[in-house]
Amino acid sequence: MPDGAVIEFSNITKTFGTVTAVNDLSFTVEPGRVTGFLGPNGAGKTTTLRMLLGLVAPTSGTATIGGIRYRDLPRPLQTVGAALEAASFHPGRTARNHLAVYARAAGLPAARIDAVLHLVGLSAHGGQRVGGYSLGMRQRLGLAFTLLGDPGVLVLDEPINGLDPEGIKWIRGFLRAMADEGRTVLVSSHLLSEVQQSVDDVIIIATGALVHRGTLASLETEAAPRILVDSPDRTALAAALGHAGIEFSVGRTGLLAAAPDAALIGHVAFLAGVELSALHRERKGLEEAFLALVNGGGDTHGNETGNASGGESR
């Protein structure tokens, strides 16, 4: 079984002309976990991954796999498997021949070709020209290329794009199995909901800069807590909150108070003699926390609540 290796980005920056696509990004990705690399379209995810793979030269900074730059890896396909967004196939070549070309370049035995075609469920279509493939089949062929060298590190750019529900379910199980075998799995997406069922850690970037890194659970605690409170006599409740100096806004189902915990609000109401009909912590969705982060822009470097590399035990 191949061993995972640590992926490390340190102060990596890429500028295209006057546009800064990736700005001083540093983070590590640990083996044995699925790490989601998230951010809106155009945030710089693909550029970052292409710099890791030696396809795009960084303006400054380094990206390494197990401490080695991709270009210096002695056996790249056997170390890192990558599936990038663009469909990179010659339409006139069969799937089997497509893989054979790169197996030849990497010095891999021909038996690997059938093995990976089987693994992604394309055994029956290996002799077919790729030009006739559906989007889902192309995604699977991209994945077959990724697995060709049985690498310990997997880098997948938007692998769920274009997959049908069955394919999405399959890839989730696949990512989990790969991480459980001890491999390093880095998977990018512009939608948190697409990957939240399969990732352990998240790295979130917006406009080329890091806005959050930590465990998936850390995202939830990210948003400022709010307490939903309601009373048959809302006017009295509002007055009591105002008197206690607690900020609040009026929502559809009650008042949303900015307070760290519900007990404080209950105490304020008790002192003012106001009857409560509802009192609970508002549960903010992961997606909302994610959106708040990426819309907040790249100026919140300080709010790391965890560390993707350290991680918290689940």
Binding site: P76, L77, V80, S88, Y102, A105, F145
Partner: peptide, 18 residues
């Protein structure tokens, strides 16, 4: 030019970055 057109430079350079 086919390598550029069909974007096969990506797998080519992944398999051999030299």
């Amino acid at each position: 030019t086919g390598e550029f057109r069909h974007q096969t430079l990506t797998p080519t350079f992944l398999a051999n970055p030299r």
